[in-house]
Amino acid sequence: MTVTAASLAYPASPALLHRVGDRALSWLDAHRDFFRLTPEDRATGSATIERLKPIGELAINMQVLFREGVAGSRQRTRAGALLDFAWRELLDGGNVLAALQHDEPHSPVPLEVYAPFHELGHRHPGLEAALEVSRRTTTWTALEMVPNRRLGVLNAERKVGLTPSADFDQALARTWLGRLPEPWTVQLHIAYDVTHTVFHLTNWGEAPDRIPPDVAAYLTRYLPAWLDDWADLEHWDLLGELLVVDACLPRPTLDARLWERYAAAQAESGAMPIQHGMPEGDPDVVFDQVHHPTLVAAFASAMATSRALTTDAG
């Protein structure tokens, strides 16, 4: 019998898992104003798109927190206030997305950012009408993008209640993960492709059963080694995303050893560095460097805490 790190793993305590997310949410709330688009951002379409993505990720995180039911009353209040702030102040009730849709009618970004807000009850009829016009063009389905991004567009369409513009199974088959390649070929960008394929396939962890059995078996077998590798490299952003993937598997490990290392990397403020330790410098620059791994920490925490309370890990 071969003894592996995965076979020796024991699950982290729900208290540890929850604490990571609580601290991350505190940091995100305290730094909410840094998500704002600046006049310089608005003057440049590409800059606007880059600044909108974190707002969409913030909304997804709040949605996951509500959906998984692991937030205490204080967390729920804070998450609700953050979501309202994002919709009303950061996106001007959706007008920012509608303006981008007008300027770049075939960009999928307005749809992708709008989708979690729509699921949570927010509406912008003008944006939805403009999206329908764009989706009727051949260009909408002919746009060239990496396969896991195509999955993301299909999932966003589904979230908004639209008929997906392509077949999910065929889109999955075109991804790296869908082809079940040699696991030792995984490098940084491929690992991120893997995590985002799982995110879009499961609607950000809502439906883990959408992972086909052969893909789930592949991940169950090889994910522990990838987790160890990126933990050893102290790449906390990618490790956090891989921990979400673990939480989406039929029998998540929720490995305490990895979660303890991950939690130890988190700053007292609740921020999570991308890799190694926290950066220093101008607050705006630091925010740009750590907001994504901190959002990932909140996401991973909510998913892992939920699975720890509802499934048998291991």
Rank of each mutant, 00 (worst) to 15 (best):
L233F: 10
W230T: 08
Q75H: 06
V153I: 15
M145A: 12
L151F: 14
P105V: 07
L249W: 06
P279F: 02
I49H: 01
L100W: 05
A71M: 02
R74E: 11
N61W: 01
S13C: 00
H102T: 08
T197N: 10
D229Y: 08
Y192T: 14
G240T: 08
C248K: 00
R42W: 06
L8Y: 09
I274G: 12
V113A: 05
D232T: 12
A308D: 13
L239I: 09
E57C: 02
R149A: 14
D209S: 11
G45N: 08
L254A: 15
L25K: 01
P212L: 03
L172F: 14
E260H: 10
L82F: 09
A271L: 06
A59I: 12
P212K: 10
D33I: 13
D214P: 03
V96K: 00
M272A: 02
D282A: 08
E206A: 14
T141I: 10
T311D: 14
L82A: 04
A86E: 03
F117V: 00
E132V: 07
G126N: 04
V286Q: 06
D214K: 07
F34R: 15
L131K: 02
P252H: 02
L37A: 10
L201G: 00
N61T: 05
P279H: 04
E157I: 11
R210S: 10
G93S: 01
A6V: 11
L227K: 07
V296Q: 05
E157T: 02
F34V: 03
G80D: 04
Y114W: 03
V296P: 07
A191R: 14
G72V: 04
G56R: 01
H291G: 00
T77Q: 13
L37W: 08
H235A: 06
H31Y: 11
E68M: 15
P279G: 08
H292M: 00
L82R: 01
G314D: 08
P213G: 01
E182V: 10
P125A: 13
A247L: 02
E89V: 13
T2E: 05
D41K: 03
Q63G: 11
D209R: 08
L249I: 09
L227S: 09
E280M: 11
T44V: 14
P224Q: 13
P283R: 04
D84R: 12
R74P: 00
A267C: 04
G80F: 01
L82Y: 00
A173W: 06
P293M: 05
Q63A: 14
E50L: 12
A297W: 05
P181C: 04
A5R: 12
A173C: 11
V296T: 15
A247T: 09
S269N: 03
L143N: 12
A156I: 06
R307M: 11
M145L: 10
L151Q: 05
D229V: 05
H276K: 12
V113L: 07
P250F: 13
A115W: 03
V296L: 02
P108R: 11
A191S: 15
D167Q: 12
